[in-house]
Amino acid sequence: MHLNIMEKSELNNNHINSSFQREKWFGHEFLYEFHGFWFTKTYLETTQKVLENFKPHPKDVILASFPKTGTTWLKALLHSITHRYDTKDENSLTFNHPQELIPSLETNLYVQEIPQNNTNSQEFISTKNPQKSRILATHIPYQIFGGVLNSSDCKVVYVTRNPKDTLISLWHFLRKSKNFEQDPWELGAAVDQFCKGIVPFGSYYDHVLAYREESLKRPQKVHFVTYEELKENPKNCVEKMGEFLGCPFEGENREEEIEEIVKICSFEKLSNQEVNKSSELPKVFPLPYNSFYRKGQVGDHMNYLEDEMIEKIDNITREKFHGIGFMYGI
């Protein structure tokens, strides 16, 4: 069950201190438990702001995901699908990182006051027009965020990825942090904590299953797609997302339109854009723009995880996923 309004207020009456169970992560970071999920101090604070302040519009699209499961790629795809007839937007992915085109609620919009010159983010926060379609991203679990999502007719697109590739992608991502150099997150410890669910926004398994369950119950509300499906058949996935979002590909040029979106949003194309190779830091994120692109490969975990590590994660996957008929992740 997702949080009700009374439960949300719990954060208002508690400071992030010893009243929250916490676990050491890496560097000087701790993770704090809230309703069965784990957050950094910053993410717990910004999640509170999202729960208190965010009101989705009926035409909003919320891109939900567990960290490092293909979020940046989906941002590019969703933006391209919904803006494909906007001539003013033709070169947006050339000059803008997907993270700027589709801001994340708890890591962009509510992490601090938005600078006045950041007009795009200001518009996302302040717009009062419920007819204006916005695309916003979040990592907040459905169990916590479901009440907000269900308060309007907004649509949700959820992407997930093989748990082992997700862990390795997260591990590499964090290696670019200064805290990692001071106190590394050793791979063995990373596997242990991932299996226990003690990672940001974890448990991974509970995160995935709640959104998947909603997609099965209400496919018109939640569209569930895997990273592996996107890699194997991107044209089919783009077509289905267009239909789900209410902007289907139609007419004699539909195949060309789909192929063009797949092309401009390919990993090779995006990772080679100058804006995405930049070592500059976003205004409200501690890692550079180029940290969001590495390999984008399926099965990359085999280059890093030892056999016993793979088996440990697979055992959890069999229990959590295969045990309820979701044959995924192994």
Results as ranks from 00 to 15, higher is better:
H2Y: 07
N4K: 04
S9W: 11
L11N: 01
H15W: 10
I16C: 01
N17L: 10
S19W: 03
Q21E: 06
K24P: 12
G27T: 05
H28L: 11
F30G: 06
L31R: 07
E33G: 12
F34P: 11
G36I: 00
F37L: 12
L44V: 03
L44T: 00
K49R: 15
L51C: 00
S65F: 05
F66H: 15
P67L: 00
L77P: 04
H79L: 12
H79Q: 11
D89C: 12
D89L: 10
E90S: 05
N91R: 12
S92T: 14
T94C: 06
P103N: 02
I114S: 00
I125H: 06
S126W: 07
K128E: 04
Y142S: 01
F145A: 01
G146E: 01
S151Q: 08
D153A: 14
D153K: 15
Y158V: 10
T160Y: 05
P163W: 01
R175S: 12
K178C: 06
W185D: 05
A190K: 00
D192Q: 14
D192W: 14
K196N: 06
G197D: 03
V199C: 03
V199P: 03
F201K: 09
F201L: 06
G202A: 00
H207W: 10
Y211H: 08
E214P: 03
T226I: 04
Y227V: 05
Y227S: 04
N236V: 09
C237R: 15
C237N: 10
K240P: 04
M241T: 11
E243L: 14
C247W: 02
G251F: 03
R254C: 13
R254P: 10
E256S: 09
I264R: 11
F267P: 01
K269L: 00
N272E: 02
Q273G: 07
E274H: 14
V275N: 05
V275E: 08
R294I: 08
Q297M: 13
Q297P: 07
V298K: 06
M302Q: 15
N303E: 14
E306L: 14
M309F: 08
K312Q: 02
N315V: 15
I316W: 02
E319F: 14
G323I: 10
